[in-house]
Design a protein around this nucleic acid. Sequence first.
DNA 1: ATGGTTGTAACTGTTTTTGTTATAACCTTA
DNA 2: TAAGGTTATAACAAAAACAGTTACAACCAT
Lengths: 138, 138
Amino acid sequence: MKQISTRFSIAVHILSVIALSSNDCTGDFIAGSVNTNPVIIRRIMGMLKKAGLLEVRPGIGGATLRKSPEEITLLDIYRAVNVTEENQLFRIHEDPNIQCPVGRNIESVLQSELREAQAAMEQRLAHTTLSQLKAKFE
Amino acid sequence: MKQISTRFSIAVHILSVIALSSNDCTGDFIAGSVNTNPVIIRRIMGMLKKAGLLEVRPGIGGATLRKSPEEITLLDIYRAVNVTEENQLFRIHEDPNIQCPVGRNIESVLQSELREAQAAMEQRLAHTTLSQLKAKFE
DNA sequence: ATGGTTGTAACTGTTTTTGTTATAACCTTA
DNA sequence: TAAGGTTATAACAAAAACAGTTACAACCAT
């Protein structure tokens, strides 16, 4: 990788706009705020919908939160846009030589270490809610 | 990104092999343990050398650690193979619309949140030393 | 001088990301 | 019912990153 996809930051942007505005936000309107193509927004809104965070109204337009901002954490959003494969942040090289003591054990040794590092990051994300972010925009 | 590159796990593999074996480890030998092309190994060893973790002997072959295994953490290795741009794990979309309260503030609000999430992960990586890993291979 | 090694450049195929165009399906309202 | 704005989604393209490969120069003990 180089970095975690902007899908995540755009998803946070989308939910923040929806949480803040009283009137209905269409994909085109949000695209104007994010400054990108509306299809990008709809794609990400589709993921947020699939994750149960958003209710989108086809035809009429706009979307509303399906949970209160207090109940939506950055981790929920992060997971919704599934930025990493199989929810694994770190990738480990495959098929090491099992003749070698290192090659034989590297995967399990690293798996447990990296899982914990990833968990530390995710716990920090889970610590912040959309409602806290909302307060910073007002 | 999809996931963090295998450069990191391969770098850990390389240093573990060197830390464990008494005799000199050539790039070809390590490539055999990792089960990949020797050039991949040399490239990563070059990064570890540049980071001051490794001393490589051109011509004669082999490499030795430049710090004791107690002093080398997973974070040192992670940083050495500079797996992310500018050491920033998360990417944030650019040029949001500054007319919008969200667009105007999203970058700074997210920057501080994501920096902390990344820091939490890195602290966990800094917590584990090569010497601890070494013990798990023996 | 030879042979094994490291250091690098150049190239390839694959995958991911971001953005785009196009089109079908949806729903209000006039 | 027709029109107009909207969501849903497929298909495509350009750019970047990754892992691997070939090739070759530079290095050094014997």
